[in-house]
Write a protein that binds this DNA or RNA. Structure first.
Length: 800
RNA sequence: GCGGGUAUGGUGGAAUUGGCAGACACGUUGGAUUUAGGAUCCAAUGGGCAACCGUGCAGGUUCAAGUCCUGUUACCCGCACCA
């Protein structure tokens, strides 16, 4: 058979469409399998060569599960709100909705040309009003449960996007998206209380089948730490509360530090002899951008409060108080007790300001460097804690503090609440109005959702940091749903993470108008069985969507505590030069070109064969040829049919079926393909194979290269789809050889091999090995010290 | 600095519990076929004439180490003054 990939691929894509081959079944009595890939942002650039890697992988899993009899849900949609579209719209004066529509059409055509078995009848789009309706509905539930609140606060503001960013969107002090400088601005923002779920977001990871690096990254981002809050009195009578993970070192606290933004500073204006100096320091700190702050991380600066001292509660000693920007206003209480002997940062600061360093945990040389080891140290210079180990001291001091009412156990998190407002146009409007008469934010009644975006002339963000919607008077001015008086709509929109935080639920029942999905569908399909996506979303999308799912669980919408049972991550496809693919590097590969020159099946196969699925790998134009060659060789098998069963080929086939079946579940797609290649090589050596053997082979090939597999299947006289046929099964007894090759070693070095019947006893194997002429010669005249034999593997004779 | 990961031929990468290192491909070389180019097929392909030597580097454990232990280097990713 000639391998005309272009016509074969067109033919089968059309056939699958016509037959609705991959439409998800609604028979809820069947076992289900929900495979999920991250839906793309339909950018103007079109599909990236990296997209097909995870999509093909999960297509393989889905196709195999389908052939194994599962009711499979493998959907696709568009995460279509976002800044690039809006920026394109501004530049070219086209409505964002039209740009989106155009990009979606292109993406869809490109995904279809890859032959993915998505159920297109369940396609969703986050910008669709019927979808926005339910994103807004979830927001309103969060609002009604007190988890969405508006707060005046210092936020990350991108100077280029003119938009606030969540902490998760600031990378190395610059904007994650455009790389521009991020500064702090005080603004009133909608916030989501993700911190209320911090403990559960860590604890519920246990028992989930997530790859380890995803778990640790989430845990580190949430950053839970256990310690205590301790109250320090001051000479002014005001109390400063500090958070510390090392209450055991309280006797070593020789000074305190408060953040520049600490509120009490204002109150002490008249007591402080150097108030002006302190305010100057505060203002200088405020001016620093995030980027400058991270750059200047080494140098410790600060100003001592002249006129006020704090009192260490354990020994009554007066200690100085400093203002320094190495203490963050947003973590803990914004104030710390400094123990230079046992904290590196405090030590640096104490050296710079010549402050006393008192050792309270023995074991290091605290004049040379801070001693931070908590595992081996013994307490000293600490009165009633002396002689205790650090862990014991911690417990005892917390007990003591609690008894005296000056401290208590406390857990803290690095995770902050989620800044949920964006001052841009192309996002979901926040469905609230502000009513002066009622004096508060009023939710839009649920039956009036969705609140849709008005058509406007200009999408540009304003220099004042207000949303472009603010200029749209006709839209902003409305009536209050409660009192009927005049009210103003919220003009901020939601971040693009909103729509993706629940999209997997919509796939379960994508056209429902009564609910985000019917509970029947949700109960059947959820949780997602296998979700594959990029590492870059671990602290963003993955965390956010787990938070929303937990909330929806709490209010009874879904019945699972966690949305995803299994999470894996793929490696990137790099440019041919080993660098990340980018326009500026000029190493971008266009999938359209590859499909034209090699076919979608070759591209699919190559992206799976390129290497370990979890690792990044450079693209190689030369290597894809090998995959095409392999497919051509498979096409050639149709001319090699025989009626005679070759037993050794039959054994190889069953081994191959076993290997491919197991490898797919283990995400070892590259070795699965290698196994099929080996088998095909063997067939060429043998010269022929039976129809049944070829049918089994194309069954295995079907998830990887479905077009060619279907074509051969049809050529063999089958009238039903291979994609819906039964997955090939292997006979375990046929996968075991009755003869094995065994290595013979002398002193651990390979000296020969021998063929033995399987499970030949140890003694026999050793005896046969010794008869080998080469081995016999090597043993000749030596003393045998030891003889080791591992059945079916190796014989090792140790001689002297 | 902290956390996670990686290191194997000219290249991408294989190697159950420690048990024949380099599967499978790419590339290269030689040959066949072809008017030519391309494509295809066959053969060889870690190094060394050889004994042997070879999995970033240095040690160790073991009959046996890519795999386990100790130390070390380089690179990648994440976090980054989180008290």
């Amino acid at each position: 058979m000639k391998y005309d990939y272009t016509s074969i691929e067109k033919k089968w894509q059309k056939r699958w469409d016509e037959l609705e081959a991959f439409k998800t079944g609604t028979d809820y009595s069947k076992p289900k399998y929900f495979t999920l890939v991250e839906f793309p942002y339909p950018s103007g650039q079109g599909l990236h060569i990296g997209h097909p890697r995870p999509y093909t992988a999960m297509d393989i899993v889905s196709r195999k599960k389908r052939m194994q009899g599962y009711n499979v849900l493998f959907p696709m949609g568009w995460d279509a709100f976002g800044l690039p579209t809006e920026n394109y719209a501004i530049k070219n004066k086209i409505q964002p909705s039209i740009v989106t529509e155009r990009n979606v059409a292109r993406f869809k055509q490109q995904l279809k040309m890859m032959g993915f078995s998505f159920d297109w009848s369940r396609e969703i789009n986050t910008t669709d009003p019927n979808y926005v309706k339910w994103t807004q509905w979830i927001f309103l539930q969060l609002f009604k449960h007190g988890l969405a609140y508006k707060k005046e606060m210092a936020v990350n503001f991108c100077t280029s996007c003119k938009c606030v960013l969540a902490n998760e969107e600031v990378v190395n002090g610059v904007c994650e998206r455009c790389g521009s400088e991020v500064v702090h601005k005080v603004k009133s923002q909608w916030m989501l209380k993700i911190t209320e779920y911090a403990d559960r977001l860590i604890d519920d990871l246990e028992g989930l089948d997530f790859i380890e690096r995803v778990k640790t990254q989430e845990i580190n981002w949430i950053g839970r730490s256990h310690g205590a809050e301790v109250k320090f009195n001051t000479t002014e009578g005001d109390v400063i509360t500090v958070y510390t993970t090392r209450p055991d070192t309280l006797f070593g606290a020789t000074y305190m530090v408060i953040a520049p933004e600490y509120a009490l500073i204002e109150k002490w204006k008249n007591v402080l002899n150097n108030y002006d100096e302190i305010i100057a320091y505060k203002e200088a700190a405020a001016k620093k951008s995030d980027f400058e702050r991270t750059e200047l991380v080494k140098e410790k600066t600060g100003v001592m409060l002249d006129g006020i001292k704090a009192i260490n509660p354990v020994n009554g000693k007066e200690i100085p108080i400093f203002v320094s920007d190495y203490v963050l206003a947003t973590y803990g209480t914004g104030a710390i007790m400094a123990v230079p002997a046992h904290d590196t940062r405090d030590w640096d600061f104490a050296k710079a300001f010549n402050l006393p360093i008192i050792e309270v945990v023995a074991g290091g040389n605290v004049q040379e460097e801070a001693y931070t080891d908590v595992a081996t140290g013994i307490m000293c210079n600490s009165d009633f804690l002396n002689g205790l180990e650090v862990a014991e001291a911690k417990e005892k001091i917390i007990e003591w503090l609690t008894e005296k009412g000056i401290g208590e156990k406390k857990t803290n998190f690095k995770l902050r609440d989620w800044v949920f407002s964006r001052q841009r146009y192309w996002g979901e409007p926040v469905p609230l109005v502000y009513c002066e008469h009622c004096g508060k934010w009023i939710p839009i009644p649920e039956d009036q959702l969705p609140v849709t975006l008005p058509e406007v002339e200009h999408y540009e963000p304003t220099d004042t940091g207000e949303s472009p919607l603010a200029h749209c008077d006709g839209w902003v001015n409305t009536t209050c749903p409660v009192c009927g008086g005049p009210a103003k709509r919220e003009t901020d929109t939601m971040p693009n993470w909103a729509g993706s935080s629940w999209y997997f639920l919509r796939y379960c029942d994508p056209t429902n108008n009564e609910a985000l999905a019917s509970s029947e569908a949700l109960d059947y399909w959820m949780p997602v069985d296998w979700y594959n996506g990029g590492m870059e979303h671990v602290t963003l999308h993955l965390l956010y969507s787990r938070f929303w799912a937990k909330f929806l669980y709490d209010i009874g919408v879904i019945k699972c505590k966690e949305p995803y049972l299994k999470r894996t991550a793929h490696g990137m496809i790099l440019g041919e030069n080993g660098e990340k693919m980018s326009k500026s590097r000029g190493n971008v590969i266009n999938p359209d070109d590859i499909v034209r020159d090699y076919g979608a099946d070759s591209l699919r196969l190559y992206e799976m064969f390129i290497g370990d699925f979890e690792k990044s790998a450079p693209w190689s134009q030369a290597s894809i040829k090998g995959c095409k060659r392999f497919l051509e060789r498979i096409a050639g098998l149709t001319e090699m049919l025989t009626d005679k069963v070759n037993p050794s080929l039959e054994a190889s086939l069953h081994k191959t079926i076993k290997k491919v079946t197991l490898d797919i579940d283990d995400m070892k797609f590259n070795t699965a393909i290698a196994a099929m290649m080996s088998f095909v090589n063997e067939v060429y050596e043998a010269g022929s194979l039976t129809k049944a053997q070829l049918e089994a082979l194309v069954g295995l090939l079907c998830p990887f290269a479905p077009h060619l597999a279907e074509e051969i299947w049809e050529t063999l006289g089958n009238t039903t789809l291979l994609s819906l046929a039964k997955w090939p099964e292997y006979d375990e007894s046929k996968t075991v050889d009755n003869e094995v090759e065994i290595a013979i070693q002398i002193n651990g070095k390979l000296k020969g091999t021998m063929k033995l019947a399987i499970n030949t006893p140890r003694e026999d194997a050793i005896a046969i090995a010794k008869q080998d002429p080469r081995i016999a010669a090597l043993i000749e005249g030596k003393t045998i010290v030891k003889e080791i034999a591992v059945p079916n593997k190796i014989v090792n004779i140790v001689v002297r």
